[in-house]
Amino acid sequence: MITQYVFYFLSFLAIMFGLMVVLSKNPIHSVLYLVLTFFAIAGHYVLLNAQFLAAVHIIVYAGAIMVLFLFVIMLLNLNKETEPHKNVWLKLSAAVASGLLLVVLVGSLKNAEMIAATNTFDPNVGLIENLGKTLFKEFLLPFEVASLLLLGAMVGAVLLGKKSIK
């Protein structure tokens, strides 16, 4: 019973903070609301027995990516409400388009045929032992390719961040 209430509470928090990310005028407030959204999603991961993933999510997203965002905003001095007003028709059409997308998604998924869970429920699936076995047995090649991707991203970021390219 309590799990249900925790689920509703975390979902409410995630959706509300997500809306605040989009609607708040100051970019710093957007970043902080996004961090709160990530914490709510990490709470969902804990509810789903994915404890390791919840820890990694907080460390990588709230700890690394959002700090990078904050760093760039501070560096560019964007911490004021300088956004010029968009055309009201553009705003209205953006709201209508995303509302229609939500209607289509919900309408198509509401009556979808559910797959029954074939495996018996295993509470240890999200633990680091099982994840490590899957990662290094079935997904070894993608794991190595991800290292190449990160190396390429690092070189690209350093190259783009330099003052002048000779």
């Binding site: 995630a14 959706i15 997500g18 809306l19 990310v21 989009v22 970019p27 957007s30 965002f69 760039v72 905003i73 964007l78 956004e83 010029p84 968009k86 705003k91 059409s93 953006a94 709201a95 388009a97 995303s98 509302g99 997308l101 939500l102 998604l105």
Partner: peptide, 17 residues
């Protein structure tokens, strides 16, 4: 949550948001 993300991409003009 996905729709909120789409709304943000369409709604805002600040590239960081």
């Amino acid at each position: 949550l996905f729709t909120i993300g789409v709304l943000g991409v369409l709604f805002r003009r600040n590239a960081i948001i």
